[in-house]
Amino acid sequence: MKQYIDSGKKDTRSGFGAGLLKAGQANPNVVALTADLKGSLKMDAFAAEFPERFFQCGIAEANMVGVAAGLAIAGKVPFIGSFAEFVTGRVYDQIRQEVAYGNTNVKIASSHAGITLGEDGATHQTMEDIALMRALPGMVVLNPCDYNQTVQATVAAAKYNGPVYLRFGRPGVPNFTDPEEPFVIGKAIVLNEGKDVTLFATGHTVWEALKAAEALEADGIGAEVIDIATIKPLDEEAVIASAAKTGAVVVAEEHNMAGGLGEAVAGVLALHRPTPVEYVNGQDRFGQSGTPSALMAAYGLDALHIAEAAKKALARK
């Protein structure tokens, strides 16, 4: 199979910080806001280079969403940054009215998403944010898989005119995508071609899916690995084409079942190409304290579980 080299572990939130700086350099209308999490969101470089375009909002996320909407109405391109739970669940109604229904050009930068937030535990580990953001009409939902892709996704979000939810994470993870590859919103990325089973993955599970594909190859199974970096709008054509080719599907995500990528993929396939689907996700649970890698294993989100799910899907062909 195609080989991907980890150029050294890096956190995707640092990819966001680097992308934000690039976007700010390219467009003077890009502004950034945070609710007392500048450092955690790696917004320091932007704040240092553009102090007049960086706004500290204090621990008041609801107001931050509204302020960003106002800035966007007046022509700015605001990025609002906080932990995933606090820029989705905490402010769902504000995002719904001010950003989605109000159709304002606000970029929601959502860090520490999923269970890999780690030791802080379940209060801070949202496994429901994709569902909330997917439910909003017109909201674009991006979930890049590594540092390089997050840089590019941030740049693409800044160029796109409309509400964007940009999800990324806390821990260092393998950095393996091409740093020069531009991010195309709405396009699934085929990382490896295979004929027996398709592994759809998003965010931190993409690397795990690649590792699973290697293990499957050793067992003589050809796994197609597709990076769903844009969860909404979903690249339905790519989903249908790959399912038609392999006839068995696994969907892996660092998110719960309800409203996640798994349901999105299954919904498309039920309509256009009924195919056996196995899910690798947090099911219907809250997280807990632990190291990111221990949690990924304990909640069944790692390469081992993806490979097992692939064999189950194959058996159902």
């Binding site: 509204g66 960003a68 106002g70 007046a74 001010e98 109000g102």
Partner: peptide
């Protein structure tokens, strides 16, 4: 701007003023 869900307009106005 859209409004109706209460308590949000003053934030949007602050954003416009900014």
């Amino acid at each position: 701007q859209a409004s109706g869900s209460l308590g949000q307009g003053l934030s949007a106005a602050a954003g416009l003023a900014l």
